[in-house]
Computed example of a mutant assay.
Amino acid sequence: MSEVRLAAEQRTEFGKGAARRTRRAGKIPAVLYGHGSDPKHLALPALEFARVVREHGQNAVLTLDIESSTELALTKTVTTHPIKNYIEHVDLLLVQRGEKVTVEVPIVLTGDAAAATLLTQDLTTVQVEADALNIPEQVEFSIAGLAAGTQVHASDLTLPAGTTLVTDGDAMVLAVNAAPTAAELDGDTGEATESEATEEG
């Protein structure tokens, strides 16, 4: 995952009113914390940050230009308005080059399982530990040709070099089951029809 550079401003006003003013100015209220340092209250450029999340995902690593200093930060939490869908607030975690971080990464399934099967996916993300500057954007798993009865656990996922699984390896990711036949799906209807025929007779 590539680093993205953003210019950030220190915030001196706090509270809901100040946050609204920050958003009206086209910026997003953010807090940068970690490594035992005092939290820094920042304002991020809204359009640029939204583009970063869209292109790099919510685990984006940012190089923040804050006045005369530069900080490396991992996007930890992005809070979005439930109705209007704009970013309300961002929590950023201070990181250092070479530091390992624990993040959640989406599981992306590719291919199609065998015919006449149904797929049940229990996990859509997996927790991993990776270098802060080499966080995988996703973990891919091919379900091509998987037969009914197949179960895939977290330990079956192939992770990029340097990435370690944190999620319990026994956790179920997905199961492939036999799809019900047309006769099984019509079974209830058939029984009802037979019952009705008996009553009519």
Results as ranks from 00 to 15, higher is better:
residue 55 E to N: 08
residue 19 A to P: 00
residue 168 D to K: 12
residue 79 T to N: 11
residue 190 G to S: 11
residue 155 S to I: 11
residue 182 A to T: 11
residue 8 A to T: 03
residue 123 L to W: 02
residue 115 A to F: 09
residue 65 D to C: 03
residue 28 I to L: 13
residue 153 H to G: 03
residue 155 S to V: 13
residue 11 R to G: 06
residue 51 R to A: 14
residue 77 T to V: 14
residue 118 L to S: 09
residue 96 Q to N: 11
residue 151 Q to E: 15
residue 152 V to W: 03
residue 123 L to Q: 10
residue 200 E to S: 15
residue 190 G to F: 13
residue 58 Q to M: 10
residue 129 E to P: 05
residue 145 G to K: 08
residue 149 G to Y: 10
residue 201 G to C: 03
residue 183 A to H: 06
residue 134 N to W: 02
residue 64 L to I: 00
residue 26 G to C: 11
residue 100 K to R: 14
residue 26 G to H: 09
residue 79 T to R: 12
residue 89 H to E: 06
residue 25 A to N: 07
residue 37 S to T: 13
residue 182 A to H: 07
residue 156 D to K: 08
residue 13 E to N: 12
residue 191 E to N: 07
residue 167 T to Y: 08
residue 44 L to D: 01
residue 97 R to L: 13
residue 13 E to T: 12
residue 111 G to H: 05
residue 44 L to G: 01
residue 56 H to W: 03
residue 149 G to R: 09
residue 74 L to K: 05
residue 196 E to A: 15
residue 182 A to W: 04
residue 123 L to M: 15
residue 29 P to N: 04
residue 67 E to W: 00
residue 75 T to H: 01
residue 150 T to Q: 04
residue 175 A to S: 15
residue 113 A to C: 09
residue 160 P to F: 11
residue 116 A to T: 09
residue 11 R to K: 03
residue 41 H to V: 07
residue 84 K to D: 12
residue 33 Y to F: 14
residue 29 P to S: 05
residue 49 F to A: 03
residue 41 H to I: 10
residue 190 G to A: 12
residue 148 A to Y: 03
residue 22 T to P: 02
residue 4 V to Y: 07
residue 59 N to M: 04
residue 16 K to T: 15
residue 12 T to V: 13
residue 48 E to I: 02
residue 68 S to A: 13
residue 167 T to K: 05
residue 24 R to M: 13
residue 11 R to Y: 07
residue 5 R to M: 10
residue 152 V to P: 02
residue 81 H to A: 09
residue 162 G to F: 10
residue 130 A to P: 00
residue 119 L to M: 14
residue 109 L to Q: 01
residue 89 H to W: 06
residue 88 E to N: 10
residue 10 Q to I: 15
residue 15 G to C: 09
residue 91 D to T: 07
residue 3 E to N: 10
residue 6 L to C: 05
residue 49 F to W: 04
residue 119 L to G: 00
residue 60 A to T: 01
